[in-house]
Nucleic acid binder design. Structure first.
Length: 115
RNA sequence: UUGGCAGGACGAUCUGUCGCGGUCCUUUUGGGCCGAGGAAAGUCCGCACAGGACAGGGCACCCGUCUGUGGAAAGCACAGUGGGGAGUAAUCUUCAAAUAGCGUAACAGAAAAUAACCGCCGGAGUUUUUUAUUUUUUUCUCCGGUAAGGGUGAAAACGCGGGGUAAGAGCCCACGACGUUGUAUGGCGACAUGCCGCGGGUACGCUACCGGGCCUGCAAGACCAAAUAUACCGGCAGCCGAGGGCUGCCCGCCUGAUGCCGGGGGGUAGGUUGCGCCAGAUAAAUGACAGAUUCAAAAACAGAAAGCGGCUUACGGCCCUGCCAAGCUU
RNA sequence: CGGGAUGUGGCGCAGUUGGUAGCGCAUCUGGUUUGGGACCAGAGGGUCGCAAGUUCGAGUCUUGUCAUCCCGA
């Protein structure tokens, strides 16, 4: 199973992010809030991760959460259909351990597959 | 041994699986090497760099303020000088020049800075006693002298003793404290010590004085440059109807002057550079899991976005050196 | 990344030259009313964000620090 996460599978650029925020649909799954948009393309899915500065003032905690979310997505990216742009926002005010984030990511990707 | 003070060093290492950024080699898979901190933080000072402004000078505004050395400079470092404070001590901490002018000092208190409210003393008048008058004593008023004493207050006009005086006063004297001209010695210097002389109201703030400072900041700035609209230039078509709308196409109807093509400047998205030649991106890289080691679950504070010199703040634990206090042993 | 502002009773705010920390609403008590509201009288409630410094004395002055909000690009 390919568990890598190269740059082509990460969402970059102002216009793409703006389009996702403007037109995407969203739902809540545990500590994560997902926002997604289906593109007219068969490329691999692209993701972007966000941890609000309002909830975590120190950059160390924000980086730690972003790495845990990215790691849990990387392990389970086979569940996602191609052509999706996905945004993950961490909405809690406390730092959760890796196992909890991994479980929430599983639920999020499963419900994304049912859409 | 316990407690403390000061200084310094460190801020995990290794193995496996998966994964990320850069670079090099192959270029189809892959492989080698490098990959966060002592504070990367706060953005409190300074520098360099970049753009803008600018003949020269002044005012205003802002910052600094004991001395020496280092330094590009710094609200910088090191060493020192003189006061104040904390601690039994080791030690730590805080402040700072000189002269002149101006201002403030609530409440309390007579008075808060050219000091006479009470008191003390002298003189004149008046009154009382004795009375022939003066002297003495007493009451009150006026004039003058006087900083020894007066609940206060943060602060009360050098301290203490003696002389002196009507009463007093550095008014005079001895000792002492403070400031200061001169001088000698020591020190690069701030300054210290001694001698001679002089002086006498405290604290704080502001101004003058001395030194420094143009403004804005890497999202600064430089370059390349889609789509769309378009200054300008050229060509073609055009009131004998181009083009547009009803409408996906034709006819028809309505509208009625610009339309098409090419070049091209500025410039947006985006990119390159600034930017690091052993970290270096441009939505932004160091992580996840398992195990070993040292007493120990590797845990504290914390994540580079242009660079450098400092400051400040946060921080678990361990080690080394010197010193202080107390107790015990020899 | 750069620039600016504000922290004072439960809430919203004053507090100029340092000198007893105040106002409105709210709370409590009493009065008025058959009762309530409104009104009248009175009372309680403050580490002035935090920590140092200057000063006889700091909400105010100086320095550090924490939090919140706003602006430019």
């Amino acid at each position: 199973m390919d568990a890598s996460l190269p740059k082509q599978e990460r969402l970059c650029g102002k216009t793409a992010v703006a389009a996702l925020f403007e037109h995407g649909k969203s739902f809540q799954s545990g500590c994560l809030r997902c926002k997604y948009l289906r593109r007219e393309s068969s490329d691999a899915a692209r993701i972007i991760i966000s941890v609000p500065k309002r909830n975590f003032k120190r950059a160390v905690k924000r980086n730690l959460l972003k790495r845990r979310i990215r790691e849990s997505y990387r392990r389970q990216k086979a569940l996602v259909a191609p052509g999706m742009d996905i945004l993950f926002i961490y909405t809690l005010r406390e730092v959760l351990p890796y196992e909890a984030i991994y479980a929430d990511m599983t639920k999020a990707l499963e419900s994304l597959g049912n859409e």
